[in-house]
Design a protein around this nucleic acid. Structure first.
Length: 507
RNA sequence: GAAUCGGUAGCUCAGUCGGUAGAGCAACGGCCUUUUAAGCCGUGGGUCGAGAGUUCGAGCCUCUCCCGAUUCACCA
């Protein structure tokens, strides 16, 4: 036995000692492979595994972690958890031998260890489908105890969990443990993956090309946000982690592709909250010869399709709300939505009248704000949180949208929509600005705001402007917040619960 | 960035008035061949988030700091 290492807990020391004992038995505690042919859910669902006498039944091989154990002298039950779920295994000394049962299984195996078994399926006298092990082997010895919870299932199938591993800090910092002991957490991420997969195939089937564009950018653009900065040693230059990929996808439209999309990790050096993580995922899509009206129809079809695939219905329960994604969705111009919610008609007001209207509504505005900012402020304070069912808010003030094309009929507005859902923005989309002269003026206005201290104003991207001068066809663009959509479709109220590894301060 | 709440055994949590650090599960030693929060007998396990202060004495009181959760502010 080794000298106790004071930094280890008693339980961790015991496991290291067991590891040595297993090696002393001539066994490898970390073998190279183990062939399996079944998962837990296969065994629970396939009735043919129970046909005939025990000798006649097919043999199954499976592997996973030991999550609970009930030893009764010369026989024992344990629960084996794999990716698909959990199944009970029955093991007896008289089947697997004294070395394997008494020494390996009873003395040296711990909860959490990864093991492989083979045997036949039977039902216990209480009716539980169980694998009767004919062989048992250790596949990976664990050195730390798992935070295993106990579960009780009553006759209605309701599961009560005792002492669950619930500390959010530990769950986020050690997500692998969360995934092992909280199976419902695995389901959330499976749903997220399916959601992305359905969107991908939906867009691919339309003929759009999935692309990859730079994350390290010499000039950041495509959104209003502060970036993360980094440095390229060889070129000795500053680079930025992208805040959006919009301007690169537009370059590809200029290059002749008529539909491109990218699932993109974007990075914004701003606050964290249950709706914000410094790195987050958007899908952006650009389609040539289309406008924002077409895009509204596209996105409602795509999301309706995804919701149907994931839930089998267009209705999703989120917190206290039931959201119905059945298309078509309500479309309402921003000023009309403000009028609808507050009774105040801002159209036709000058800047000073608007400022007064905002104050009358209890929305704080200051004298540096222009009309666009005031409208945005009123909308954000008074309307946004009331929009629970999917709703397209259209026709935004031009000041807030330097990359969107001017509205074809409404002065001072652009052809832009945001999709609101469960009181939050889910999508952002425009008829893209493709007039290079107008675009230059708008970006130069951004540069002016920037020089006045607005550190979220956009930077002039000369290479992008040059590309636009070669001609971008009329184009509709779309961005969807993947994390927020995942939150809605999995009924999670924090972005951290749909990110495997949410950003945390170092501990 | 602000406010509130929290950090005690591997996990979930108690800890009274400032007076030897507690429980359940997990672990360790036994018994037990259809159990399922298995059961029965026995045992060990603690830098009480970190540091300083007050005190004869601090898990508890005071101060500073660290980490987290929630809400608010900015943002998608």
């Amino acid at each position: 036995m080794k000298e106790n290492e004071p930094s280890l807990t008693e339980q961790a020391r015991f496991r290291r000692e067991k590891l040595e004992e297993i090696r002393a038995m001539g066994m490898d505690p970390y073998p190279h492979e183990f062939e399996t042919d079944h998962h837990a859910d296969d065994i629970l669902s396939k009735t043919d595994l129970l046909e005939g006498s025990e000798e006649e039944r097919p043999r199954v091989r499976l592997a996973g972690r030991i999550m609970t154990r009930r030893i009764m002298g010369k026989a024992a039950f344990f629960n084996l958890q794999d990716q698909s779920g959990t199944i009970q295994v029955y093991i007896r000394r008289d089947d697997v031998g004294t070395d394997i049962y008494n020494t390996l299984f009873k003395k040296y195996i711990d909860l959490g260890d990864i093991v492989g078994v083979s045997g036949f399926v039977f039902k216990t006298r209480t009716g539980e489908t169980t694998v009767h092990a004919e062989s048992f082997s250790l596949l990976t010895k664990t050195l730390r105890p798992l935070p295993v919870a106990k579960e009780v299932e009553d006759e209605e199938g309701n599961v009560t969990v005792f002492d669950a591993f619930a500390d959010k800090e530990l769950r986020y910092r050690q997500r692998y443990l969360d995934l092992i002991v909280n199976p419902h957490v695995r389901d959330v991420f499976v749903k997220r993956s399916q959601m992305i997969q359905e969107m991908r195939s939906f867009m691919t089937q339309k003929g759009y090309l999935e692309v990859e564009t730079p994350i390290l950018q010499p000039v950041y653009g495509g959104a209003a946000a502060r970036p993360f900065e980094t440095h390229h040693n060889t070129l000795d230059m500053k680079l930025y982690l992208r805040i959006a990929n919009e301007l690169y996808l537009k370059r590809l439209i200029i290059g002749g592709y008529e539909g491109v999309f990218e699932f993109a990790k974007d990075f914004r050096n701003e606050g964290m909250s249950r709706f914000h993580n410094p790195e987050f995922t958007q899908v952006e899509l650009y389609v040539a010869y289309k406008d924002y009206n077409w895009m509204m129809s596209f996105v409602e079809q795509m999301i309706e399709h995804v919701v149907l695939k994931l839930h089998g219905t267009t209705k999703v329960t989120v917190g206290d709300n039931e959201i119905d994604f059945k298309a078509p969705w309500k479309r309402i111009p921003m000023l009309d939505s403000i009028k609808e919610s507050t009774g105040v008609d801002l159209s036709g007001m000058d800047e000073e009248e608007m400022r007064q209207a905002a104050r009358n509504l209890g929305v704080s505005v200051d004298n540096t704000m222009g009309k666009g900012k005031i409208i945005d402020e009123i909308f954000g304070e008074k309307v946004e949180h009331t929009l629970i069912q999917p709703t397209f808010i259209t026709d935004y003030p031009i000041e807030m949208s330097p990359l969107a094309k001017k509205h074809r009929s409404k002065d001072g507005l652009v052809e832009r929509f945001e999709l609101m859902c469960n009181g939050k923005e889910l999508c952002n989309s425009f008829t893209e600005l493709n007039d290079p002269v107008d675009q230059r003026e708008r970006l130069e206005e951004q540069a002016r705001l920037r020089s006045e201290g607005d550190d979220e104003a956009m930077v002039v991207d000369e290479d992008f402007l040059r590309a636009l001068e070669y001609g971008m066809p009329p184009t509709a663009g779309l961005g969807i917040g993947i994390d927020r959509l995942a939150m809605i479709l999995t009924n999670q109220d924090s972005i951290r619960d749909v990110l495997f590894f949410p950003h945390m301060r170092p501990d």
